[in-house]
Design a binder for these strands. Sequence first.
DNA 1: CCAGACGTTGTT
DNA 2: GTCTGG
DNA 3: CCAGACGTTGTT
DNA 4: GTCTGG
Length: 231
Amino acid sequence: MCGRFALGVSRKRLEELIGASVPAKYEPSWNVAPGAWIPARTQKGCAMLLWGLVPYWIKDKVSGNRMGVRIMNARCETAFDKPAFREPMRRSRCLIPAEAFYEWQRRGRVKYPHAIAHASGRLLWFAGICDRWTDSGSGEVLRSCCILTTRANELMAPIHDRMPVIVREGYRDLWLDHSVTEADWFGRVFAPLPAERLKVWPVSCGVNKIGLDGPELLKRVSGQPRQGSSL
DNA sequence: CCAGACGTTGTT
DNA sequence: GTCTGG
DNA sequence: CCAGACGTTGTT
DNA sequence: GTCTGG
């Protein structure tokens, strides 16, 4: 799954990588959590979206907060059928850039955080969906998103059984193009990224602490070797 | 028909 | 808005 | 995802 | 245990 990630690149660098102008609201962070404003590539450009999908049909802000901030992920296997995801899957897909994502490996009652990044050092692009909710009272518009998940590949399996959908370069335009509807294509997009394209390493529990931030969160720590890896 | 949910994760 | 459960 | 709270009364 | 806040 994907409940925390890092995107510590400068705004200028992100603009180069995303190929669009990034709103000034963007700030680098190595501890991005649900509820944060995150940059996303849409068909139109780059927008800052609330991580935690608030469907357009939500009636009021209270239920929006209840429902929205909690929906940080959507299972790719069922997203086309779920009321909250159906329309966004069809017409508002996006790509969410990250340098790495964090997963916690549970061993008994202890949880060990790991970072996972592209083996090449390039950014990861998560498959996301977004929606636009309007406050009926104030007219305020809230744009929000969530990240699709798929089954873990062999690298991730010892740590966790789910991982984010990472869209490979050749499929990114396809994912953003909402004239594309063939299920066959999405099957390819949703396939877990092959293990050899990712790298994983243990990090400190500093990432657990909301509000703690900085590049040091991505530093490898020793003494917590992961177990059961087939690689 | 109306009322109520609408999601994921993990854990047991 | 749209689906499911009663 | 993790951390941290976890209440009541009445009124609009 | 379960919800909210970040």
